[in-house]
Write a protein that binds this DNA or RNA. Structure first.
Length: 276
DNA sequence: AATGCGATCAACCGCCGAGAC
DNA sequence: TGTCTCGGCGGTTGATCGCAT
């Protein structure tokens, strides 16, 4: 029970992979491609199930993986995307070239979630990067940028004229005013919406200063979900055509913006925190 | 040096949806 | 239409590491 059919056909090894097993898998996939994963173990001479081979390749052996610690940009991006997508780790990982859903998930659970649980807010990014903040900003907290007495961040005006941003905000405002959708952050029980979620709800922020590989970005389609705390869900279908690491095109109006133009007040300040 | 404990992360588990038949 | 296989995903586990005592 619980094992795939491919795992039941033969006795399979479990647990950590040996260097020899890694070598066999790499050699096979680089030569023939993975094809049908369920047939990979047999063809590669491995006593593993296909699922295990797939996982090992995707999470560890793939040549395009970026190893090592998450950068500030990546962490901020994860936080931002998580506020939009929730625990859709695979979707979040797609915005982080070289990172896997497993990595993102582990990073969230180990470095971010626990701090949120212990503090109840992400009011200070130094919780996540205690050693890397500088002193340029004397008070590097999100509340410093979004005063607590300001409009809730979900309904804050934004500085870009991007149609998609305006669309999302318009819909959110309408729902808010109509009282038919309570747009709390995805994890409202953990997070003060004036702080954590305030990095931005702007889906274009995924483009922020990030060197997306062209192959990941061509004809990119994003389905942005803004989840409420009820059974209501606002869905905004947005199609973005990324052109390169610095520009992207909103397919609705063909707005070409440099990343500088995309920086909303919120994300500018966030980055100020991280890199000043 | 030995031990305990929390953090990290690779790997597994269980479920789901798509596609083939 | 129902069943089966497979790939993919999120949740969870457990081994290992590093630090504190």
């Amino acid at each position: 029970m619980g094992h795939h059919t491919c795992c039941n056909k033969q006795k399979v090894k479990r647990g950590l992979w040996s260097p020899e097993e890694d070598e066999k898998l790499i050699k096979y996939i680089t030569t023939y491609g993975h094809g049908c994963w369920s047939s990979v173990p047999k063809l590669a001479g491995l006593q593993r199930c296909g699922k295990s081979c797939r996982l090992r390749w995707i999470n560890y052996l793939r040549p395009d993986l970026k190893r090592g610690s998450f950068s500030h940009q990546e962490a901020a991006l994860i936080i931002e995307l998580h506020s939009i997508l929730g625990n859709r780790w695979a979707q979040i990982a797609k915005h982080l070239p070289g990172r896997t859903d497993n990595e993102v998930k582990n990073f969230w659970n180990s470095s971010i979630k626990k701090k949120l649980l212990s503090h109840g807010t992400l009011s200070d990014f130094s919780m996540i990067f205690p050693n890397n903040l500088t002193t340029t900003n004397p008070n590097p907290s999100f509340e410093n940028f979004y005063p607590l007495n300001s409009t809730p961040i979900n309904f804050m005006p934004i500085s870009t004229n991007s149609p998609l941003i305006l669309q999302v905000d318009h819909q959110m405002n309408n729902n808010h005013l109509n009282g038919d959708l309570n747009l709390n952050p995805v994890v409202p029980s953990l997070i003060n919406p004036l702080s954590f979620d305030s990095i931005t709800n702007d889906p274009t922020w995924v483009n922020f200063n990030y060197p997306h590989p062209q192959h990941d970005l061509d004809n990119y389609n994003q389905n942005v979900l803004i989840q409420g705390n009820s059974d209501s869900m606002l869905t905004s279908n947005i199609s973005l055509n990324y052109t390169n690491g610095e520009n992207f095109m909103d397919s609705r109006n063909a707005d070409i913006k440099t990343h500088q133009d995309l920086l909303m007040v919120r994300s500018v300040n966030c980055v100020t925190i991280l890199f000043n």
